[in-house]
Simulated scan of single mutants.
Amino acid sequence: MTKIRIAVQKSGRLNEDSLKILKDCGISIDNGKDQLKATARNFPLEVFYLRNGDIPQYLRDGVVDIAIIGENVLVEKGKDIIIAEKLNFSRCRVSLAVPKSAKYDSIQDLKGKRIATSYPNTVKEYLAKQGVEAELHIISGSVEIAPNIGLADAICDIVSSGSTLFKNNLKEVEVMLKSEAVLAVSPKISNDCKEILKKIQFRIQSVLQGRRNKYVLLNAPNDKLEDIISILPGMRSPTVLPLAEKGWSSVHSVIQSDTFWEVIDELKQAGAEGILVCPIEKMVV
């Protein structure tokens, strides 16, 4: 039986988020501690636990068929790799930072400066577009310390909350790119594995749709029903059911998470009562 091989980061937050979305897709993985490979119990899938920076080459060589990986890693090491799906988690940005005490007005201030980074290709491309030449020091590991020990005038690194920069007395001055986890596909994937990939994508899309929406139930007086329905975006149109109490109806609909509070405020002002909000596990559209 054909099994699709997926690479995920060996450890860290991306590892946890990757395994969570596979679990939410109903894929059960037998993974013991320190295993480098595991098999799904109920789906034709094998998981390879790899170093993030090695995954693009494994995809390119066809050692794995697909991977959950940070988009920033593909920009740096795998621009030829196809992205099948953006996964809306493990978001970060790749940014330039300088010491807080440094004067910085624009990217031109980095001309001739020393920049420490583990993303040399990303930095070179960005600086070239800005017409800036700088000296790059390629470091694998913690680059934040480089300005403090006199190795560099600036750094390029991944930024999530910015707390690491703050602790190292640095300030973010340029966002070069924004990144999130993506589902990447090997150029050597077989036709059989492409069929399995379609099933995985369908499940992932259903999970992501669920995460992006909330299920809402509310009570509405019938004389305000039209106004309340007009506020609800819904999938097509909300479900309206009569309540036991005369003159009232129950309205069921779906609201996008990113506009949730604004819509709820409008619903209350329009006369909605007893608003109940539920998470959506999966949403098949």
Rank of each mutant, 00 (worst) to 15 (best):
112 G>E: 03
110 L>H: 01
89 F>V: 08
102 A>Q: 15
108 Q>H: 03
116 A>P: 01
92 C>S: 10
95 S>K: 07
87 L>M: 11
105 D>E: 15
108 Q>Y: 01
106 S>W: 08
94 V>M: 09
109 D>F: 04
91 R>C: 04
100 K>P: 08
113 K>T: 04
108 Q>V: 00
108 Q>P: 00
90 S>W: 06
92 C>Q: 06
115 I>M: 03
115 I>E: 06
98 V>M: 00
96 L>P: 02
115 I>N: 06
91 R>T: 08
102 A>T: 14
105 D>K: 04
113 K>S: 06
99 P>W: 11
101 S>I: 15
105 D>N: 15
103 K>M: 11
101 S>K: 14
93 R>M: 13
104 Y>M: 14
98 V>F: 02
111 K>C: 08
114 R>W: 13
111 K>M: 09
117 T>F: 13
113 K>E: 05
90 S>F: 09
98 V>S: 00
114 R>C: 06
113 K>Y: 04
90 S>Y: 11
95 S>V: 07
88 N>V: 07
94 V>E: 10
104 Y>P: 12
111 K>H: 08
107 I>A: 12
112 G>M: 09
93 R>A: 13
110 L>N: 01
95 S>G: 03
112 G>C: 09
87 L>I: 06
98 V>E: 01
116 A>C: 02
111 K>W: 05
90 S>Q: 05
95 S>L: 09
105 D>P: 01
117 T>P: 07
86 K>Y: 06
88 N>M: 10
112 G>D: 03
91 R>F: 05
117 T>Q: 12
108 Q>I: 00
106 S>F: 11
117 T>N: 09
103 K>W: 07
102 A>D: 15
88 N>Q: 07
101 S>M: 13
106 S>I: 11
92 C>M: 07
92 C>E: 11
89 F>H: 14
107 I>C: 08
86 K>N: 03
102 A>R: 14
109 D>W: 05
104 Y>S: 14
109 D>N: 09
101 S>P: 10
99 P>F: 10
105 D>V: 05
86 K>D: 03
98 V>W: 02
109 D>M: 04
96 L>Q: 02
95 S>Q: 05
86 K>L: 00
88 N>A: 10
104 Y>A: 13
103 K>Y: 12
86 K>Q: 04
111 K>E: 15
88 N>G: 03
96 L>Y: 06
88 N>C: 05
90 S>N: 11
97 A>G: 14
92 C>F: 08
91 R>I: 00
92 C>R: 05
104 Y>I: 14
116 A>I: 04
91 R>Q: 06
102 A>L: 15
97 A>N: 11
110 L>C: 03
109 D>Q: 03
114 R>N: 13
95 S>M: 07
108 Q>T: 01
88 N>P: 00
93 R>S: 13
100 K>A: 11
91 R>E: 08
104 Y>R: 07
109 D>G: 03
107 I>F: 13
117 T>C: 09
93 R>D: 09
113 K>I: 02
107 I>Q: 05
110 L>F: 02
102 A>V: 13
89 F>L: 10
89 F>D: 10
97 A>K: 10
94 V>G: 04
95 S>I: 09
99 P>T: 12
108 Q>D: 04
104 Y>G: 12
107 I>S: 08
87 L>Y: 02
98 V>I: 04
114 R>I: 15
